[in-house]
Design a protein around this nucleic acid. Structure first.
Lengths: 135, 135
DNA sequence: TTGAAGATGAGAATGATTCCCATGAAGATT
DNA sequence: AATCTTCATGGGAATCATTCTCATCTTCAA
């Protein structure tokens, strides 16, 4: 198990605060690049590498949620705590958090049945919300 | 809706046959690069770009399943027809197909509830199989 | 057999993400 | 407040998977 060392408590820096705020302000999920672009547009001089690093850190501690979009990019969002999934609009990005308690039970059952341990899953839904369906 | 034109019926070529066979022979999921490497190792001279193109085509018609691994790469595998999910061993790659009928119903219900249309989902499970848990 | 539409392959191009490393800032210690 | 050690930053190079380009071959219908 080779895990990268990460300081117990990261330092409080201006950049880190700005990035955290940027993620909190956005509606749905956004990639590191999108967040970086928006910050730049808003006058911040934070570097792209820092945005990547910081978002990864925030995701590792669960402070933000990270998902992989269908085209392979990683997107971040501030979410409510606890296990949940997302229903994401393909065109506008609007995101609804949903939880499927019965799924979690089934997953455990399936895993046991097949003899698999430490089973994790990532489930996201992509659709078109009412607003966008109109246009 | 800009969809890339794809010929109704692709031509039958030696390369296409080789690639299809390579995917069928493998145990679990493999990336285009892995498949290409194995083919090369077995004496095939098929180009990497062709492997990528062909696998994409096969996935588009449902002849093979394509998933995105946790680290963002696309992996392919020959599967049984119909909607199903995968329980994949993180270390050895062994894959078990599973279906969760109740999930599909819940998805439709959730989508309707939130006013989302054309909802798609991708759900894969990653765990450690019995064999690998021992080692 | 022949021609046109497709397929192939080698390498260049792309694009997201990570790495490198010299410099700057945070936080603990006097 | 001054100092010091450690960690964070940022800019640009480096990676790496994937796609594109395009000249050259194949397939397959006529």
């Amino acid at each position: 198990m080779t895990s990268i060392e990460r300081p117990a408590s990261p330092r409080h820096t201006r950049q880190r605060a700005e990035i955290r705020q940027a993620v909190e302000e956005q509606e749905g999920f956004a990639t590191a690049q999108e967040i970086h672009d928006r910050m730049r547009h808003d006058g911040s001089g934070v570097g792209l590498a820092t945005v990547y690093r910081t978002l990864q850190g925030l995701a590792a501690t669960g402070e933000v949620d990270a998902i992989r979009t269908p085209d392979g990019q990683v997107a971040y969002r501030t979410c409510s705590p606890g296990h949940h999934h997302h229903l994401i609009c393909r065109s506008c990005g609007r995101t609804v958090e949903v939880s499927i308690p019965s799924l979690e039970a089934q997953v455990r059952a399936l895993a046991a049945e097949q003899g698999f341990a430490e089973v994790e899953h990532a489930l996201e839904f992509y659709g078109t919300c009412t607003e966008c369906a109109r246009a």
